[in-house]
Each structure stands twice: as structure tokens, then as C-alpha cells.
Amino acid sequence: MKIYRVMAVVYRHLSLYKRSLTRLMEIIYWPVLDLMVWGFVTLYLQKFQGGLPPFIAFFLGALILWDIFFRAQQGISISFLEEVWSRNLLNLFVSPLTPLEFIAGTLVISLIKVVATFLVTMTLAYIFYSFNVFSLGFPLFLFLLNLILMGWSIGIMTTGAILRFGQEAEVMAWGLAFLFQPVSAVFYPVAVLPPVLQKIAWWIPSSHVFEGMREVINQGGFPAKELIWAFGLNGLYILGAGFFFSWMLREVKEKGLLLKSGE
């Protein structure tokens, strides 16, 4: 692993954002819209349901955290798609850049995106709804870390699929994260899911994060059990994603798909 090659990848992608307003907007646009819609919904609901758990914290906390997951995943798969769109893959593959270094570069990009998004949503949530996400305390950082790890593992998997199946797999870059949303128990406790989905949810790191978040909001304290599960599952996810990616890479080099650009 050579740091200068990782930095080259970072440089290339930052140069892209420097000049592209649409790409910059993407980091701010959706999160802000989401935040507004859900923020107002919760304000409205709160009028009726005074006795129920703190809606604002539940919804806005969930929303801010979910966006972290989504951006972390996007940071990787969109960076890879940029290379596909610009037909630059061959240039990368004939260079000494290793897949791991490329992924490391996109991880840095995704981290930058995540931080940008987090700062925007966090600030707006505070200004508009006086919701301070830091009220979650120290566990917040562990929640974020887990969501980022899960986002990365899904991002790496998506990248492998795009490498192998070309732009047909592009929808995965946008859609796959949402497949996890219902079973991630983002906006409701796992307990409301039907039994089958509860079993599935158990295997999704993000469901433990959101359960943990609600635990903190409801009772305070440190959700050790949920966090241990989240970290453990994420370890498996990252490992699985790594295997999947190298399998796809082998297939691609076997079938000569690198030479066939676009679709």
C-alpha cells in the first residue's frame, strides 16, 4: 500500500468536486430536503401524541444517522462509477495502483462527503428543531463508525458488481442501501417487524445501531450489547465484501470485460 497512490485517487476526485456544482449539491440537497420533510412531520405528530417517546430525537437522530450510512456507501460506489463513466478504468488497471489503494482513496472521499453531510444536517437540525445530535453522547461516535463501516462494505460490494456487470448494476449504487432500510429499523423499533423480518434485522449491523440509538434516547447509558453486535457483524460484512470484490475482479480479468467499456 503506497500512500501517494491513495492520495492521487483523492486528488483526482476532489478535482472533480471543485468544479462541479451538481456533485457538490448532491451532498447537501437530499439530506436537507429529507430533514425538512421529516422535521415538519415530527413537529406535527408531536402536537397529538404528547405522551409518547421523544419523536424529534427519534426521527431526526435516525435521519441524520441513516444519511451517514447512505453517503458512506455512495462515496465509494459513485467514485467508482465516475471512473466507469469517464472510461478511465483501463488507465487505472495498467498503472501500479492496487484495488486496495483505489478503495482506500474512495474511502477518504466518502469520509469527506460524510463529514460534510453530517455538519450540514446536524447544524440544520439544531437551528430548525433545536435537536442536538450530540445529546446522544459518546455512543454517537460509535454509531457513526458502525454506519460508516456498513456503508463501506455495501459500497465495496456495489463496486464489485458494477465492475462485473457494467452499468446495468448502476441501479445498485442508488438502490441497494434502501433495501436495508426497512429491516434496519431506522424509524421504528425492531419489535414492530413481523417475526421473519425481525430475524433478518438481527443480521443487519444498522438495526443494532438504531436500536442502540433508541436505547440511549429512552434510558441513557451505554448500549454495549447492540454495539458489540454491530461491530461484529460489520467485521463479517467487510470481510464478505472484500471476498466478493476480489471474486468479481477475477471474473472480469478472466472474461476480458475491462476491454469492453460502457454498454
Partner: peptide, 19 residues
């Protein structure tokens, strides 16, 4: 093969020089 089209000629060269 092409190169990233939204980058300037210089930026593209710098990227590969770094690589």
C-alpha cells in the same frame, strides 16, 4: 480509452504523475 473529461488537461496529468 479516455480520461476524466471534467478534469483539466493539467489535472489529469498531475493525477497520473502522482500515481
Amino acid at each position: 480509452i479516455a480520461m476524466p473529461l471534467s478534469l483539466t488537461v493539467r489535472e489529469n496529468m498531475v493525477f497520473f504523475a502522482m500515481l
